[in-house]
């Protein structure tokens, strides 16, 4: 039950997108997000849609997974649409009732904003669905590598991120297990008022904290036993190396960005 809310849902499949270097995917995602904010015409949206749809098709991830992330922002999406729809002043009034009015500009902004938000979420979902969290942090570490010169502890931050990511499913599983064990002993996590509910969490939280600390301790010990001493001079088991497909992908993204910019300037 609790496992379903895994963060950064990776969907294993055998597609070209899964094989791409995580750096390429990060850069592509950022470029796509930038492109979304550059677009201000129908033509631009058509180009962005074609790009997004082809990427989704290439990823071999079933469509329902792509839109799963939308559930979380549904409320924000609705508020944005409603506000833009009713509160944007425009030249021509389309609908008028009570004190509210919908103008042609309002309608246009509302639709564009909605598309923008949906594409934003779906676009980043494509990345997280096709890249394992570990690859993602690896990619980030390499991309942010130059910041090391400014004494930013890039390696440490990346390491912490990948450990945290690694621990999320473990802790969720642990929570599930302890919860079940206490329910079997008659614990009740659902009924009662707020105070009773908070109190009923003690039998869950105490064992959970203890196990988290135990795991952290074990991990630290295991890392030390294998002579971990930070990023200095550390090599990777699977170093990131660009392949031909990665350069092709970069090329495609550049063309996409160029088209978007051209459309914006021309129209």
């Amino acid at each position: 039950m609790i496992r379903d809310i895994t963060l950064g849902q990776y969907y294993p499949a055998d597609s070209i997108l899964h094989k791409l270097d995580p750096r390429v995917k990060l850069v592509t995602t950022i470029s796509f997000l930038v492109a979304l904010f550059l677009v201000n015409s129908w033509v631009g949206y058509v180009v962005a849609t074609i790009f997004l749809v082809s990427v989704i098709r290439l990823s071999k991830v079933p469509f329902p997974f792509m839109v799963r992330g939308l559930k979380a922002i549904f409320l924000i999406l609705m508020i944005t649409v409603v506000f833009n729809l009713f509160l944007t002043p425009g030249d021509r009034v389309l609908v008028h009732f009570w004190k509210l009015q919908i103008t042609d500009k309002g309608l246009r902004t509302a639709i564009f904003m909605a598309i923008r938000l949906v594409y934003l979420i779906v676009g980043s979902s494509v990345m997280t669905l096709t890249t394992t969290p570990n690859d993602l942090t690896d990619g980030m570490e390499r991309l942010l590598g130059p910041l090391k010169k400014l004494h930013v502890p890039v390696h440490e931050v990346a390491m912490m991120m990948s450990i945290a990511l690694r621990f999320i499913p473990i802790l969720l599983e642990e929570t599930d297990k302890i919860m079940k064990a206490q329910i079997a002993r008659g614990a009740d996590f659902e009924s009662g008022n707020l105070l009773q509910k908070a109190k009923s969490l003690v039998p869950l939280l105490v064992p959970l904290f203890i196990s988290a600390f135990r795991r952290a301790n074990d991990l630290a010990m295991a890392m030390e036993a294998r002579c971990y001493r930070g990023g200095e001079g550390r090599t990777k088991m699977k170093p990131l190396v660009y392949a031909r497909r990665d350069y092709l992908a970069y090329g495609t993204v550049m063309i996409f960005l160029a088209v978007i910019i051209a459309v914006r300037i021309v129209l």
Binding site: K177, I178, K180, A181, Q182, V206, P207
Partner: peptide, 10 residues
């Protein structure tokens, strides 16, 4: 009684 029930003590 769960597997490793000692993890439920609190």
């Amino acid at each position: 009684v769960f597997q490793y029930p000692e993890h439920q003590l609190f």
